[in-house]
Every structure is written in C-alpha cells, then in structure tokens.
C-alpha cells in the first residue's frame, strides 16, 4: 500500500495509509447485509437452542470452570506433621516479593525447629499474584495452589491475611496441609549415580 502522507518526526516516521475501497464496500449496503447474515445465523441458532446453540457461557456460581493445576490463587502456609507452621521465617519471600506485600517478624521457637514467624502477614490487596514467593521459598512452606480467589472485604484491614488465616487456608478446597514437593525435582545424578 502506498502511503498518501509521509513525514519524519525525530526518529519516527509517520505514514498515513489509505485503503482503496471497492465499489461494493463504498456502497456499504451489501456489506451490511452480509454482516446481518452472520448475526442472524448465530441469532437463530441460539434461539432455536438445543443442539444448534453455540453459547458457551458458564453459569458461574452453579458451575465453575476448572482452574488449571498451576493456577495461582490465595496463599496458604503449609503445616508440619505436628500442625506447627512449616515456615522458618527466612525472609526469602518478602525479599523476592515485587509488591512488598509480605511482612514477617521472626522469633525463636525454643524447640528443634529453632526459628518461626511470629507475624506472617500478606496484604492480598497489594499482592500481584506473581508467585515469586512460592519460587523463593526454600522450605515449600508458602504455596498458591488453593485454587481460591482473594476474598472480598469491606475494609482494607480485612484483606491482610495473618498467620492463622494462612494456616487455615492450607486445608482450603480439601488440600493436604502436609504434602511435600521436591523443589527443583530430583537431581540427575541421583538417578544415574554419576558424579556431576
């Protein structure tokens, strides 16, 4: 297409392209009739219903679209076998968090676990659901696999989930609060018994 207007402004070039209309297009009416044909076909197919219906609407509250397995939803904090929080307050997730939505204050446990979060808060309003906290966690303690959305709340304070809320989330949607995953998979040499 040949530009009808060409002008160079600093580093950019402005081109104006003119599409040549065919007679049929400039008449407009045939195109309108053609478009009406398409919409009419869909209209009558859907009005007829049954097998001819092309609607793909999901009736949300009654039926739900299944989320993909790696869907990132509401956070949860995993449990140890005795129900204690698995998190060791290593601060990797607030460090990785680009939105600065995680607040952790660590404390000594006094038992073999040595360190745990005294305060663990996630501001779900700030969270951008990027999943970097899950990537950063060395203990598989924080996960976003609940498949749930952040709950609506009437004030901002309610959108901040504390440690208790997050530990409760561990059992959301019948998830196992104790499950463990191998981070990064099994190293190759363990299978082949070769030195790296």
């Amino acid at each position: 297409m040949e530009p009808v207007f060409k002008k160079r402004v600093s580093k950019a070039t402005i081109l104006k392209l003119q599409r040549k209309n065919s007679f049929e297009q400039s008449m407009m009416l045939p195109a309108v009739v053609k478009g009406l044909g398409v919409t009419l076909r869909h209209f009558f197919n859907n009005v007829a219903g049954g097998e001819r219906s092309e609607a793909v609407t999901v009736q949300y509250p009654e039926e739900k679209f299944p989320y993909p397995p790696r869907y990132r939803g509401l956070h949860r904090l995993m449990h140890r076998e005795d129900g204690a929080v698995r998190c060791v307050a290593c601060m990797c997730c607030p460090t990785a968090c680009p939105a600065h939505c995680i607040t952790i204050i660590p404390e000594e446990t006094g038992n073999g676990n040595e360190k745990r979060p005294a305060v663990f808060e996630i501001d779900e309003l700030r969270c951008i659901v990027c999943g970097l906290c899950v990537e950063a966690c060395p203990c598989d303690a924080i996960r976003m696999d609940t498949g749930a959305h952040a709950h609506p709340s009437e004030n901002r304070a309610n959108a901040i989930l504390n440690k208790i809320d997050l530990l409760k989330n561990a059992t959301l949607n019948d998830k196992d609060p104790h499950s463990t995953a191998i981070q990064g998979g099994v190293p190759a040499w363990r299978d082949t018994n070769k030195t790296p």
Partner: peptide, 9 residues
C-alpha cells in the same frame, strides 16, 4: 542481633 533481621535487608 539473632533472628531480628536478614543481612540483605
């Protein structure tokens, strides 16, 4: 200083 802060913060 123990457990009060991570060094990188």
């Amino acid at each position: 200083f123990r457990f009060s802060m991570r060094a990188w913060e």
